[in-house]
Nucleic acid binder design. Structure first.
Lengths: 194, 194
DNA sequence: TCGAATATTGTCAACTTTGACAATCTATAG
DNA sequence: CTATAGATTGTCAAAGTTGACAATATTCGA
């Protein structure tokens, strides 16, 4: 007899709105009222479905980490092992859609906010460790001649290039750098053959 | 007959305090009162020596960009041309002092805040362009066999590795990655010889 | 000593943000 | 139709933040 729950959808919409607000006004610069406006709801809706300010930030962090983890595991599920590396590189250097870029920037925001959100700090470290480890394992599989140490080195470097490049592109730097970044990354991988 | 001006010193102290607050509370999460407390002054002092909130942020941005520019030009002045590359690499992968790290993180904060501070955005792009161009020129000089395009590619990639690595180290990721990053960067430079 | 420029402190009203709670509305199963 | 769980809206007081300005204190040179 109860009315059907809107909780899931409302929470998603609110977190989406929150992310857009963070880009516009900053993490601490965003008021609950602004989030509500952005989502075309009232502030009390936030209170009802999520809670107070801390709850909102926690929910955002959890969703963000979860999305990244899913992106890492689910998308890879159907890829044959020998194509994993090229698939990963494609993923790292594709021109991202607006939503993915926004997520990446929110990640950057959270990184610089590690003092205030030690929970986010821990989860971000875990996430990036997992990304690097996963990529390094792919490299080991694809380049049996290379040492494990070499694969980890290259994996870390390529992730650094990819992440910083994405931030630079978002900032508005010369787009020709994008091809440079990818080219160097692929050269680094090729160097594992010898 | 006037009293001697404290303006220069006060402004520096206030901006230092502002930077520390940004790390603790975030760019928009920092109140003028907190900055004043951190600097052990009163809020009216900020008003007197710098102005309102916007003035404070502008002053911070200007000083940050200026400091980076000076670090780039002045330090290089006494370096003989053939040592510029190794000096630059040392600089990029040295374990930074706390103050330099803080500046780098504030830069990250400003990057993610580009929508609110288009002025900062423009200056950051210029700054990074200058850094990459300068490094690429050093590479061209040191590696005459390499093409210009190769030098720019490598310069951009090494800057990406260095910047992202610094952020990762600050975040608290495994310190052993630091050596990996530097090693890959130096291998990339060495590849310009062939 | 005195005057002038500057430092420093204090106070005020307007505005914003937040948390809490009350009250009303509405869809759905029985 | 009706009861009920949940959706949605509204209102308040408390606390925090800011901009503006008044007022006082201090130093330096003449």
């Amino acid at each position: 007899m109860p009315r059907k729950s809107m909780a899931k959808q409302r929470r998603e919409e609110l977190l989406d709105a929150f992310e857009r607000c963070i880009i516009k006004y900053g993490l601490e610069g965003t008021s609950l009222e602004q989030v509500a406006d952005e989502a075309q709801m009232t502030r009390s809706i936030i209170r009802h479905y999520i809670g107070n300010r801390d709850d909102l930030v926690s929910a955002l962090i959890d969703r963000l980490i979860r999305q990244y983890a899913e992106q890492l595991t689910e998308n890879y599920a159907d890829i044959p092992p020998e194509q994993m590396v090229s698939y990963a590189v494609d993923n790292m250097f594709s021109q991202k859609d607006a939503l993915s870029v926004r997520e990446k920037i929110i990640i950057d925001v959270l990184m610089t906010a590690k003092e205030r959100y030690p929970d986010a700090k821990k989860k971000l470290i875990q996430m990036y460790d997992a990304v690097i480890q996963s990529f390094a394992s792919d490299l080991e599989r694809q380049y049996p001649n290379a040492t494990q140490a070499q694969c980890w080195q290259i994996a870390y470097a390529v992730v650094c290039i990819s992440e910083m490049n994405e931030t630079f592109m978002w900032l508005g730097m010369n787009p020709r750098y994008h091809a440079d970044a990818r080219q160097v990354a692929e050269n680094l991988l090729a160097s594992l053959n010898s």
